[in-house]
Simulated assay, not measured.
Amino acid sequence: MLRTVAVIVQEPVALFEYGVIHEVFGLDRTEDGVPPFELLICSPTPGVPLNSGNGAFVIAPHPLSAALDADLVAIPGGPAESEHLDEVVRTLLEVVARGGRLLSVCTGAFLIAATGLLDGKRCTTHWKHGAALAAAFPDTIVDTDVLFVDEYPVITSAGTAAGIDACLHLVREEHGPAVANAIARRMVVPPHRDGGQRQYVAAPVPDCSTDGFGAVLSWMLENLDTDITVGDLARRAHMSARTFARRFADEVGTSPHRWLTEQRVLHARNLLESTDIGIEDVATRVGFGSATLLRHHFGAAVGVSPTAYRRRFGCPDQSAAAVPGDPGSTLVASGSST
């Protein structure tokens, strides 16, 4: 049963990620039916102020040895490398050997990956650092589409607030949904969040400067709302459809159909964020033709429905622009299976 939680901090301390763990496990909420947790703040350099930037410091009162018998050891985002790396790695391995679990928030996944416990297993981190994690630890399976991944005995979570999702998932697993919901209510956060990280990834502006296909790409962007076939594009490029598709893939890096779908989804994201037009109208303007087709492609690319995306990222006065019949997204804790 989860009772004792140790947090290992090193300089520079990521305050928000550290605060997430403290908020879930470090406050007395027994009056709400939440069991008491013992929270131990540990460091390779106990008693030494650890800089977190902007003049703020964290002082860990406990050495790493205090974490050895904890039920859970949490690693907030912090340095991927440190002079104490070997000592931290040995501590984490011993915690697991004694039956404890590990949880990382954001870049804390780098420290856990250094133990080898993630070799051959799925894990996640902030989408911005996913490629670096995969390059540093090629035996891991990095999935940056999700909010967290539970690969017993390790839970890795994505950037910043995704640590809340991972912590509440663990509380729910160990103490049941009523306890997790009580903590979520006090924190004023949803006990489950729909979707994954994809909805938060900034979509890149397409590069239409390619010498061979620049003009074709620009024309496609200007005519997203029309029915575009590979044959149409091939005729504009004065090629056969087969040659065009092959050369397009070689030069652009993907098929004409996939590139066109990606740009239609990107345009839909922009419209959902900046306008209050209905979902059917969005579908027509971006070239999907129907709300059903838009939902299919949008959900596959972004991880949530158009209506859920607009609720989250649209201007406040556009929140009521949802179209009846759009089912939104099923509320799931991405990572629990994601």
Rank of each mutant, 00 (worst) to 15 (best):
V5M: 11
V5T: 06
Q10W: 08
Q10H: 09
V13T: 04
L15P: 14
L15G: 07
E17F: 03
Y18K: 07
E23H: 11
F25P: 11
L27E: 08
R29H: 06
P35C: 08
L40T: 04
P44D: 10
P44Q: 08
T45E: 12
T45R: 11
P49C: 10
L50K: 13
H62N: 15
L64P: 08
A70P: 04
A74Y: 11
I75R: 02
I75A: 06
P76K: 08
P79M: 13
V88Q: 08
L92T: 10
L93V: 05
E94Y: 04
A97Y: 03
A97R: 14
A97F: 02
S104V: 12
C106R: 12
G108L: 05
G108E: 11
F110C: 15
F110E: 13
F110V: 10
A114G: 08
A114C: 07
T115N: 09
D119A: 15
G120F: 13
K121G: 12
R122G: 13
C123I: 11
W127F: 14
W127D: 01
K128D: 14
A134I: 01
A134W: 00
A135R: 14
F137K: 01
F137Q: 00
T140R: 00
T140Q: 00
D145R: 07
D145S: 15
F148S: 06
I155L: 09
G159A: 10
D165C: 09
A166W: 04
V171G: 04
E174Q: 09
A178E: 15
R186N: 10
R186A: 10
P191R: 07
D194F: 05
G196E: 07
R198L: 15
Y200A: 09
A202M: 05
A203D: 15
T210E: 04
D211M: 01
A215E: 04
L221C: 07
T229P: 08
T229Y: 03
V230Y: 00
G231P: 03
R235N: 12
R236A: 11
A237C: 15
H238P: 01
M239W: 09
F244R: 05
F244E: 07
A245P: 01
A245G: 10
R247F: 00
A249L: 08
A249Y: 05
V252R: 02
T254P: 00
S255T: 15
R258K: 12
L260Q: 02
E262Q: 12
L266W: 14
H267N: 06
R269L: 02
R269P: 02
L272V: 13
L272N: 08
E273V: 04
S274C: 03
S274V: 04
T275R: 01
D276A: 11
G278P: 08
I279A: 06
D281W: 01
A283V: 12
T284E: 12
G289N: 00
S290C: 00
A291S: 15
L293S: 14
R295E: 14
G299C: 08
A301P: 00
G303H: 01
V304G: 05
A308T: 14
A308Y: 00
A308Q: 11
Y309D: 03
R310I: 01
P316F: 02
D317V: 14
A320S: 15
A321C: 15
P324D: 14
P324L: 05
D326S: 02
D326N: 06
P327V: 15
G328L: 09
G335I: 09
